[in-house]
């Protein structure tokens, strides 16, 4: 509880900073006035029109990814069972590429639909192929690798055959970025994500029961297959929507639930994972905007490097603790 509150406090802190700082510095007082709708002119534009959607997107999408990862990891009973690993990202990338390069359309709705269809299709395919009287974590991961390998090949063909400029733009989408995100996209997407997170929170009891094993859950009155499908759909949607808007922000879904567990202890609730996800994506975006002077790195680059290092460290510590 305390840890969750602290995380929320840090989120508010970073969010305020990211509203204040930038090419144009805005004071706290001006930020507050802008948020109340009392500022006008350039301050209103910069704070409310430019920086606020970005901060909200980072917080909401991060929370969505965190919850999504927590659900995936519980269902697969495997700390690596995240959408990144089971091929969701490559699938949504393929979907987006097909739309971008195949139809030449750059409309947001078209690309987003392509990404969602591609991601969900891949997740289902991986799940079905890994299913054999229940889906074991390790099998899920290996099937995910195999499918990802095929999809990355398809992606490469698409990029190689596409016209150079379009290919570069399309490849840029492959690394999640909040740079191009606009208020018109963030508002509906955020509302959807928040609603789905709320749905997921209501499902957290069956989720915890299923962590203890399907039989235990059944004994406690959980209809396992129904809950599993519902939770799976929730988790997929929570990755799909943010991915459609900003591209894949790799490893947030993977790292957030585990870091939350470290900070807040084992919790029955999905809230710490949501808070940690929001914190990670917001923090990563804050760093991405400021790391290299003059360039705004895609936030996906930062989450990838930080999350990846965390993952490697995690495996290293695990291997040292219990040499199998």
């Amino acid at each position: 509880m305390v840890a969750s509150l602290v995380m929320c406090g840090v989120i508010v802190g970073i969010a305020t900073l990211s509203l204040m700082a930038g090419t144009m510095q805005v004071s706290v007082a001006d930020v507050l006035r802008a948020l109340n709708g009392q500022a006008e002119g350039i301050i209103h534009t910069v704070v409310v029109e430019w920086r606020l959607p970005r901060a909200i997107a980072a917080i909401v999408f991060g929370a969505g990814l965190g919850v999504s990862g927590a659900i995936f990891q519980s269902l697969t009973k495997n700390p690596l069972g995240s959408p990144d690993i089971i091929g969701f990202s490559s699938g949504s990338y393929t979907g987006a590429l097909l739309v971008l390069l195949g139809t030449g359309s750059i409309s947001f709705i078209a690309v987003a639909s392509g990404a969602i269809v591609g991601g969900i299709g891949t997740a289902i395919l991986v799940y079905v192929l890994a299913f054999r009287g229940g889906s074991k974590g390790f099998r899920l991961i290996i099937v995910g690798i195999a499918i990802s390998a095929m999809l990355s090949s398809v992606n490469s063909i698409l990029l190689l055959r596409g016209e150079a400029g379009a290919a570069f733009t399309a490849a840029a989408w492959g690394i999640g970025s909040l740079n191009e995100v606009s208020r018109e996209q963030v508002t509906p997407a955020s509302i959807m994500v928040i609603v789905i997170i709320a749905t997921a929170m209501l499902q957290s009891r069956p989720l915890r029961e299923m962590e203890l094993g399907d039989d235990t859950a059944r004994a406690h009155g959980v209809s396992v297959e129904k809950s599993r499908i519902l939770l799976m759909a929730t988790a997929v949607a929570l990755t799909a929507i943010p991915t459609a808007v900003m591209g894949p922000a790799t490893f947030v879904a993977l790292a957030a639930p585990q870091m939350a567990k470290r900070v807040a202890g084992a919790s029955r609730s999905l809230f710490p994972a949501a808070a940690m996800g929001a914190l990670l994506l917001l923090g990563a975006d804050f760093i991405a905007q400021r790391l290299i002077r003059g360039t705004i790195l895609p936030v996906g680059a930062v989450t990838l490097s930080l999350g990846g290092l965390y993952l490697v460290w995690l495996l290293f510590m695990q291997a040292r603790r219990k040499p199998l």
Partner: peptide, 15 residues
């Protein structure tokens, strides 16, 4: 470990 490291490295390569 291979999968994890591979994912990190190919991601940084993309950047």
């Amino acid at each position: 470990a291979g999968v994890a490291l591979g994912a990190v490295l190919s991601g940084i390569t993309a950047v």
